[in-house]
Design a protein around this nucleic acid. Sequence first.
DNA 1: GGCTACACGTAGCCTGTCTACATGTAGCCA
DNA 2: TGGCTACATGTAGACAGGCTACGTGTAGCC
Lengths: 105, 105
Amino acid sequence: MKADTLRGHLDALLLAVLDGRKLHGYAIIEALQLRTDGALDLPTGTVYPALRRLERAGWLASEWDVVSGRKRRTYRLTRSGEQALAAERTEWREFTAVIGGVLEA
Amino acid sequence: MKADTLRGHLDALLLAVLDGRKLHGYAIIEALQLRTDGALDLPTGTVYPALRRLERAGWLASEWDVVSGRKRRTYRLTRSGEQALAAERTEWREFTAVIGGVLEA
DNA sequence: GGCTACACGTAGCCTGTCTACATGTAGCCA
DNA sequence: TGGCTACATGTAGACAGGCTACGTGTAGCC
């Protein structure tokens, strides 16, 4: 997939992958790979800063836990994160309708 | 529509709107507004540089014509522009499948 | 002892879109 | 005739978000 196409949709992806479950950063990357058959392979330098940004925005909450000696910061959606996800989904549908409408006219 | 979501899809939009017809820059902006019910209102500072870039890439060809005293640069797709459009459409479908697959899982 | 997988994180670059500006014609209206 | 709006093209520079390239450290295998 061409670079830059992701732009503006990263937040939606991260919120969506955390919908209904708690995951730590590394697992989020793997979950996105799995769901997209490897098409989405986000670099850590993209994901970690984004997660912190979403937490600052109040959409995610995190806590440290230690699994077999390794520290993990586990993220989950907050209430307002769920609302943000719903809004992102609506925007995604609008976006695809607009661009798709032009491309397939 | 949120800014930046457009990123990476502008070329596809411009090629698509020129599919099968010749238009000048200003008319391209209007055509996109029309097709999207006003949702897409691209600024001239976005469109004009993009058109020149696509022409340098060999995907568009342009010629000057004068209509009632006003100069217009009219663009049309080249053969390789048509191929590029087909490729952009394929990429669009892949893109929406990947992102949509995550958002609607 | 070295390698790979796991796990988190930051600094700075890169690039494509947008903002703001500059230029000029045609036509309407007061 | 002076000003306004719509038409029409274009550039310079700001901006922002994702990516590249680093740095750190543990666990487990061979």
